[in-house]
Design a protein around this nucleic acid. Sequence first.
DNA 1: CTCGGCCTGGACGACACGTCCAGATTGGAC
DNA 2: GTCCAATCTGGACGTGTCGTCCAGGCCGAG
Lengths: 220, 220
Amino acid sequence: MNAEETDPRVRALAPVCEAVALLLGPHAEVVLHDPGTDRVLAVWHPLTSRAPGDPSLLGELDTLDPAARDVFGPYEKLLADGRRLSSVSAVLRDADGSPEAVLCVNLDRTPLERAAAVLTAFAAPTASRPEPLFDGDWEQRVRDTVGAHVRACGRPAERMTRADRLALVAALDRDKVFAVRRAVPFVTSALGVSRSTVYGLLAEARATAAPDPAPEDPPA
Amino acid sequence: MNAEETDPRVRALAPVCEAVALLLGPHAEVVLHDPGTDRVLAVWHPLTSRAPGDPSLLGELDTLDPAARDVFGPYEKLLADGRRLSSVSAVLRDADGSPEAVLCVNLDRTPLERAAAVLTAFAAPTASRPEPLFDGDWEQRVRDTVGAHVRACGRPAERMTRADRLALVAALDRDKVFAVRRAVPFVTSALGVSRSTVYGLLAEARATAAPDPAPEDPPA
DNA sequence: CTCGGCCTGGACGACACGTCCAGATTGGAC
DNA sequence: GTCCAATCTGGACGTGTCGTCCAGGCCGAG
């Protein structure tokens, strides 16, 4: 029942995993996956409640270019509670070259980001920065947001459920994307839906998000 | 000749200034100004080559609301070499209430920002940030930009020269401000000119800035 | 099969955008 | 003081975008 004890891969790799987990302090977890069964083999310093035997949710990896290297990342992951992780993955192969295990290191960036925020806030002028000016690349931002939701919701590209599209439009609206000119037709093509649908989703998102009587220009 | 020795204000305030300069380490300077002559009285830990007797370049301050408090900032200053300072100023008055001296503390934020950059870069994913989303407060940005130019160009509020307005509009256009909806009427009121003028300046700015044949939609 | 929900393409009015121009105003040269 | 050139102004005008609305077509559930 306990893969940690019986599996030879775990026995062989445990020292490495534990050493890495110790080195990275209390804010990193190390997970060993079985690429055959797509399940967790072992976890050191778990950040979530995952345990050996749980599904890996690793399907993302095998959809990446199989001809590419065996090291992925660092890429970003989001936990349910909002913490942001930096993750790297390594595919470990046996003598034949077939995948034996996948090792993932997930580092919680939250404390680092908090520390950075403290530093940047120190004696920061109340005025703003003259450097990181207006977001010139809002189109790329839209593409990124859409891509993130595509990855988060389901593999299918633009065939997600209506709720997903609604959440996506709501997120874009929160980002004030629709305040820039020509935004709707661009989102239209990015989402692969018609202009009418975008307006419909937008109205629905705004109705459910702000039922208070503040249309867009509150008096005084 | 040496105000540091003779001026009673310097003798009285030197301990305070030196203490603050020491506390803030090697990255801060303390400057004591004479508001009457607009000249530097004394400097501790100078970041620039200013010395007692040099002009203060403090004219900016007396244009601020005279009824306001005697503490300004923190606001941002730029050095010629690009270093960014956080500055605070305090007006020191005698028993009659007339300004006796102005004390400025300038903190070099560069090392702090470098440290923050190191932290944020640590294990940062190659992808971008999902947090500092689209710039929601572009109106404030416009106000800040206008205010900065007002301070930099001339004392008068909205009676600056045409060239100043042109540079201002060009800066706003560089920031892609005119890509957001309803931007022109807002800039119109912020600049205190008519809509026609804004369009005229905008056309002129774009003509002189980009003489290449790239109107706005370069082929392929 | 029928129904209800959803997406679609298109039509439409309302605005915002950008251009243009004649008249008023300004500041400087003479 | 007059004259002139540059500039700002308010408004008119044509065009594009915005946002709404509706009739019709496509599913999946019952």
